[in-house]
């Protein structure tokens, strides 16, 4: 196959865009009313059935627990895949992260580092990290009554972890930023999610159902949100910190 010239490439792209516009045009002119049956059902029964006032939480933790389980597995696989691919390419991961990629990766040495950032970023991110972590925990734990939930809170927690990692100047790493800690939190989170999902089977309520009958299921939603948030936060934080190892030095 011979290399395409730039003009041929632009022509291909224009044709692609034109074809996509033609295919998507009916979507823009569609004049159907939004179906409201399910919305009305959720509005009248969703809170009682799932315990969550936030109906989005009610759906992804109450009605569609399987989806959430699959989603966390996809996230786990993506994080391991990305770490594996970057590590196997001979990249320098942050200290401690080489174990995660089969221990054959040259680890960046914590000594002899060139500062590419100003002191300002180090100081500000280091101080801001704990605040962001607390906000992430809030978003995570109050996901059933306000906008938020496990995934959103988890991502905020992950950015807090990245802040701590950036602010700790390599040598004095916060223990939370260590590879072992994050990997353990992620594994424990996944195990806890599976256990929480399986509890319903033991009590006869079914997979991903609140195990205690007669009690408001809101506690179950909060527990699931917390577990998912910890897992997502540790996973994405792990990925970001591992990638930081190369750019930092």
């Amino acid at each position: 196959m011979k290399a395409r010239t730039p003009s041929a490439q632009v022509l291909t792209a224009v044709l692609c865009i034109a074809a996509a516009s033609f295919a998507l045009w009916p979507l823009a002119t569609l004049d159907e009313a939004w179906p409201e049956g399910i919305r009305d059902y959720l509005e009248s029964r969703g809170q009682d059935e799932s315990g969550a006032r936030n109906l989005v939480s009610a759906i992804y933790l109450g009605y569609r627990g399987y989806d959430t389980l699959g989603e966390t597995i996809v996230l786990l696989v993506a994080v391991s895949g990305a770490i594996g691919m970057i590590g196997a390419a001979g990249s320098k991961l942050a200290p401690g992260y080489a174990d995660a990629a089969q221990g054959q990766v040259p680890v960046a040495k914590p000594t002899r580092r060139v500062h590419r950032r100003t002191e300002l970023i180090d100081v500000v991110t280091g101080k801001l990290g704990p605040v962001v972590l607390v906000f992430g925990l809030y978003v995570m734990l109050f996901g059933h009554v306000s906008p938020g939930g496990g995934f959103q809170g988890g991502v905020v927690v992950a950015s807090g972890i990245v802040f701590l990692g950036m602010g700790s100047k390599g040598a004095g790493l916060s223990p939370l930023v260590g590879a072992g800690t994050l990997a353990r939190i992620e594994a424990a989170g996944f195990l806890a999610l599976l256990l929480a999902a399986g509890l319903g089977i033991v009590s006869g309520a079914g997979f991903f159902a609140p195990p205690l009958r007669g009690v408001s299921p809101v506690g179950y939603i909060v527990a699931l949100n917390a577990v998912i948030g910890l897992k997502v936060g540790a996973g994405i934080g792990f990925l970001c910190i591992a990638m930081l190892g190369e750019t930092e030095r």
């Binding site: 399910i38 919305r39 969703g46 809170q47 109906l55 989005v56 569609r64 009554v145 306000s146």
Partner: peptide, 16 residues
């Protein structure tokens, strides 16, 4: 789509 606001809520399914 959070109950208790007194408004007609939007459909929460696309958001989920």
């Amino acid at each position: 789509p959070i109950m208790g606001g007194g408004q007609r809520i939007v459909d929460p399914i696309p958001q989920a």
